[in-house]
Structure formats: structure tokens, C-alpha cells
Amino acid sequence: MFGDYSLGDLGSIFVMQGFAGLILFSVYVLMALGLAIIFGQMGVINMAHGEFMILGAYVTWMTSNLFQAYLPSLFAGYFFLAMILAFLASGALGMLVEWALIRHLYKRPLDTLLATWGLSLMLQQAYRSVFGAREVGVELPQWMLGSLHVTDSIEVPINGVFVMCLTLLITISVAYVLYMSRWGRQVRAVVQNRIMAGAVGINTEKVDRLTFGLGCGIAGVAGSAFTMIGSTGPTSGQLYIVDTFLVVVFGGAASLLGTIASAFSISQTQSTLEFFMSGSMAKVLTLLAVVGILMLRPQGLFALKVRK
């Protein structure tokens, strides 16, 4: 399949496809970060994660409409406000869900999967009732359009660079919060041993709620980023949920580094293969490879040594 291209062409193809893959990588990482916190740290399988992401996307869409209607002069900067709003909206919904639903199910992890699936159905229907079944697209401000010409054959879209920087920033802050801050230490303590954490005076219920909210909030930011690469519809989130779970599992559930590495390898494989074959076959091959590797190495790429 490489035979028809010269070496220089191949180089450009890999760079361009690699970059296209990097945007997919950003959405994967943001989605998977939230999921890795919820699934990896809390053991809750949140099938509604895609719907939290879509909530962020809708919030972004509404913010952009609001700015267009009332504050056209500030439109260039709406995205930053939209991201914060998306984080808050999804995070708040996440905390509400944790309080109403998830906290009753910590001892039955498989049942969280079923309950959150029910939740995702309800959220999808709610989006359909409120925003309509048609997919909506967000208008980007002028400065995000266009692309940087690196060489003659290589072009890099600006919004892609922006999304990537954003992802990097969020990943670093999440890592900082989890591994450096006092609250992150509490989260990890609760994960390792809920009873002992409670015994030394950590309010485990509060930690759980905030952790779940943080995971969902990051999904909301992923939704903001998502509006740049796809249009938002009530069921768009569902398309990403399996991929994201695979990313998390492939990376090793409790490892942030593993999540990033696996998101990178999955998105790059898929994006590079897409150039040489149909999109569906690229996806099939990528997923097959992931499932195959997982069968050989079920603990994922980067597994923490845990005593069971």
C-alpha cells in the first residue's frame, strides 16, 4: 500500500495524517481523562460519559449563539467563556447524578454500567426535546479558521493547534491536582482504601462527589473541543463512548500516563490507516489490534501493581 507514493510524499502524508490524528487524540484524551478518573479511580462505568460531553458541546453552541446575538464585538473570545461554562454545567450535572444515582451503586460496579446507560438514554431524549434532533454546528471565530503553512505540502489547521494546547493544559492541571494537591491525595486515598480513608477523617462522600463532578466537567470541556471537529447532535456522544472506554482500558485503568499513551497510539493508528483504506476498515483494524493486545495483556499498557 505504500508502493504508489514517493518517500517525500509519504513523509508529508504521515505528518498531515498525524496532525489530523492529533485532533482526534485531543478529544480522546479529554474524554478519556474524565473517564479514567471516574472508571480508573472510582470503578464506576459511566456509560453516560458521552452525554456529558455533548452537554458541553451544547453549552458551547449556546454561548456562541448568545455572543453572536448580544456581544458580537467579543465573539473572538467566546470560546474561553464557553469552555468554563461547559465545565461547570457538566460538572454540576455530574455531581447531581452522583448524589442521586451513583452513590447507591459503589458496591455493584457492573450495575453502574446499566444505570448510567439508562441515564444516557434519558439525557439523549432530553437533548432531542430541548435542542431538536438536527445536528448543530458552532461558528468559529475568525482567528481560529485557516491554517499554518509549514512547508509546501504540509498544512496545519489553527483550531487543531489550539485544541491541542488546551488538551495539554488540562492534562497537566489534572495531573497536578491529582498528584500534588491535598484534595488529589484524598482522592487517591479513598480509591486505595475507602474504609481507612474514612477512618482517618476524610469525608469520602464529598470526595466521591467532587471526583465524579471533575470527571464529568472534563468531559464537558471535551465537548467544547468536539464542536470544532464535528457537529453536535443528541446521539453524537454515543459514538465515542466505546472508543473512549477502550482508550482507558488499553492504557491501564488507573494510570493517567497510560491513558495518554493509549489515546495517542489509537488515534494515530486510526488516522494514518484512514489514508490508505476506507475509514471503516481503518477503525476495524485499529479496534481489532487494541482488543487483540488487550487479550494478550489484559492489564493494559501501564498497569499499577495492585495487591488484590
Binding site: H104, L105, L114, A115, L119, M122, Q124, Q125
Partner: peptide, 15 residues
């Protein structure tokens, strides 16, 4: 209502 109903039914059954 169908999706609402199915989702709610499911949550109720699990909880």
C-alpha cells in the same frame, strides 16, 4: 416518551 420511559425503567430496576 419512549426513551425517557426506558431509561427511567432501567434506573429504577437497577436501583
Amino acid at each position: 416518551l419512549w426513551l425517557f420511559g426506558l431509561g427511567a425503567l432501567f434506573i429504577a430496576v437497577v436501583l
